[in-house]
């Protein structure tokens, strides 16, 4: 599903070059729930941004669902993000003017679904995350945990092949965090491939494989 070879990422300012990823090799199989852990500054999020096509690596190769992403144009990358990938960000990243239902509808509308189809699917996924009763609420009317569950609903509404989550529980209290991670576990059980960045061991234990990063390199892996 994902194949990363010798991945490099260096941030450049005027005179300073800061290498963040120093040759990452990683394979993720379909249906895996993989956790990326490491200390702050280890390069966890940077790795996820490269693999999920939100950023361009400095070097190396990423094969995503059989496609070398370097060969894709910007528009094809956008298309791939729309159809094949799902994202859950640390700070929920919901569009403030849109209701929970509309936030979940947006990628579906972009895919060409009608308002009725998109609305129906959005309600189904909101029901899955237990928030159908809050479908008409704007993000500002929802708690942090609820917002993150709406973000998960948006990310899975179009049945993505891979779900990327960047510290999805970091801003949540333990109860809300637990609810979100249980959602992920449920999705994983249904065969969803998930790549999750986290620094919280109690949530990482839900992953079937954990890779540990240190100074931009994978230093070890644990498999459940």
């Amino acid at each position: 599903m994902i194949s990363v070879k010798n991945l490099l990422k260096t941030y450049k300012t005027k005179d300073i070059e800061t290498p963040v990823l120093r040759g990452i090799d990683l394979e993720v199989k379909a249906g895996e729930f993989i956790g990326i852990m490491g200390k702050s500054g280890a390069g966890k999020s940077t790795l996820m941004y490269q693999v999920s096509m939100l950023d361009n690596p400095t070097g190396g190769e990423i094969i995503l669902d059989g496609i070398n992403i370097e060969s894709l144009s910007m528009e094809e990358r956008t298309q791939m993000r729309l159809f094949e990938l799902g994202y859950v960000f640390q700070d929920y990243a919901l569009i403030p003017e849109l209701s929970a239902r509309e936030n979940a509808m947006i990628p579906l509308l972009m895919q060409g679904k009608t308002f009725i189809e998109a609305g129906k699917i959005a309600e189904e996924v909101l029901s899955k995350v237990g928030l159908l009763h809050r479908k008409d609420n704007k993000p500002s009317q929802l708690s942090g945990g609820e917002q993150q569950r709406v973000a998960v609903a948006r990310a899975i509404a179009h049945n993505p092949k891979i779900l990327f989550a960047d510290e999805p529980t970091a801003n949540l209290d333990s109860v809300s965090g637990q609810a979100v991670i249980e959602l992920f576990e449920e999705l994983h059980k249904k065969g969803q491939t998930i790549v999750m960045v986290t620094h919280e061991p109690e949530y990482a234990q839900y992953c079937n494989r954990i890779v540990y990063l240190e100074d931009g390199k994978i230093v070890r892996e644990t498999v459940k």
Binding site: E76, M80, M110, G112
Partner: peptide, 22 residues
């Protein structure tokens, strides 16, 4: 997979629809 991608290339009507919606 790549050909599936190309088939589902975004249509202008969807671009307009989402633009209008937003």
């Amino acid at each position: 997979t790549k050909s599936t991608n190309k088939k589902s290339k975004t249509k202008w009507v969807d671009v307009l629809r989402v633009g209008w919606f937003l």
